[in-house]
Amino acid sequence: MVPEWLLVKDNYIPKEEKNLYIEKSIFSLIKIISIIRQNKNQDKLVYSINPTLKVVSIIVMILCVSISRSFIYLFIIDIYMLINFFLMEKKLRKRVLLKSFIFPLVTLIALIPSMLYGNIYNSLLIFQKLIITILLMNLLSHNTKWSEISKSLKFLFIPDMFIWIMDITIKYIVLLGEHSINLLFALKLRSIGITSNKYNSLTGIMGNLFIKSYKMSEEMFHAMECRGFIGEYTTKVNLKLKKMDYAYLAINILLVSLFIYF
């Protein structure tokens, strides 16, 4: 016999949770992984420039921009940025633009009280510089292979060990990120309505993630040993320049000389 209470239809409607912290976490993790995973093998113009040259010239440009006090120079850089921007792929443009404008706008709002005291020129200068630097970095990360960027750090006297660890980190952000997405989905499936012990479950996931990463690193060491890795990692800077690269170099030298001129 089936007991009677099993046959009665249950009208349980869980109260809706207002802050969707699990979804938000899943979303931000997916975003990160998709940025890392995106295919950067396009044959567009900007993608084919030598990455070492690109990284070095962008860092020099950031330095120039942050020292510069001239609106004209910043304006010229703005135009240069726009040209760069339109050389990007269409679907990436929106993402880059959105990412590069939100933060400067927030800053601009925060600077309003100071502008009311007459500090207008410098505030606008900061706003302008922020847009340029954030846009520069975002363009770099979207149009260059990340492994190439980290390799080119060698040119800036960054030790091999650091570059090696950074490469591991990027790979493991993806692996551990996927693991934590799975954990978060498991949590989502098991929590209905309002959950009172949010912190417990979230910190549990973080703890689990740490133990998982510990195990993964051990596995990785064994895998490396099996393949004959002795713990020394050397990277070589890619400095083969093509015609394109010389043109890029010329443009950058021109921009730096403009900085000196203004």
Partner: peptide
Amino acid sequence: TRQKMPLLGVAAAFSFLIMMFNVPL
């Protein structure tokens, strides 16, 4: 130990991911 060297990279990935977790306030 040499065995734990990769741990640094994985730990860096862990510390990066911790910042991605949205915690309810």
